[in-house]
């Protein structure tokens, strides 16, 4: 799949316009691609390269550094179980193994029907709520084996769709930067001393 749709191309251009240099928009645009297709497709990277005026190899270079970008399709639901120290102390590894058993797959793989992918992840900043996990980056705290089973059953039957959007959709609220309200980009080599400093000194 796929280059950006026409609407997304407009949005992509708008996002690029928020930065003094276009390449800064690379990560947000990769998220936009993953939101569209559920993963970052080759064509999308080529389209991004055109939009920010770098080579496709540079886009891949950045993309491949970051854990969240998937270069191949993953499950509709990405179940990320934290096994770092605070969670490990309270059963994070056991929780991971329980989820693996429930879904019949190992961490790092996807169920044959393409519904679930499991990952064993590092600290997700919910350490006081251990053991915890995320599904498509939505949090679930103090997860018992029974709660994990119920969650997976709910997800499988679409009962959590309002809470957990499909993989790729991150924030459902976007920043709007209305042109008439903007201060404008501070571009290196162009801007001078900010006016409020000048006035204060005078």
């Amino acid at each position: 799949m796929a280059r950006f749709t026409a609407d997304r191309t407009i949005l992509a251009r708008e996002i690029i316009g928020r930065y003094p240099r276009p390449k800064s928009a690379l990560i947000p645009l990769l998220h936009l691609a993953q939101e569209q297709d559920g993963y970052v497709a080759q064509d999308a990277m080529e389209h991004i390269a055109e939009l920010v005026d770098v080579t496709p190899a540079e886009v891949l270079g950045t993309c491949s550094f970051y854990e969240m970008f998937k270069l191949e399709p993953v499950g509709e639901y990405l179940v990320n179980v934290c096994t770092n120290i605070s969670c490990m102390l309270l059963g994070g590894e056991e929780l991971l193994h329980h989820v693996e058993g429930k879904l019949g797959i190992k961490s790092g793989s996807t169920t044959p029907d393409g519904t679930f992918t499991i990952e064993d992840v590092e600290c997700i900043a919910a350490c006081t709520e251990a053991p915890c996990l995320q599904v498509n980056y939505r949090y679930f705290y103090k997860v018992t084996p029974e709660a994990a089973d119920a969650l997976i059953d709910d997800l499988r039957h679409g009962r959590r769709a309002h809470e957990v959007p499909k993989h790729g959709i991150l924030a459902r609220t976007r920043q709007q930067l209305p042109q008439d309200k903007r201060a404008g980009n501070a571009v290196p080599g162009i801007a001078e001393e900010p006016v409020w400093l000048r006035t204060a000194e005078a």
Binding site: Q175, L177, K181
Partner: peptide, 28 residues
């Protein structure tokens, strides 16, 4: 932004600044 706390001429002053939300993709 809509209430005039961010952007051009904040609260009627000469102070103007944009805040751009940026987000990462997983790397400690």
């Amino acid at each position: 932004y809509a209430a005039g706390y961010i952007g051009k001429d904040i609260l009627g002053s000469e102070y103007s600044v944009d805040i751009v939300l940026h987000w990462g993709a997983g790397a400690y």
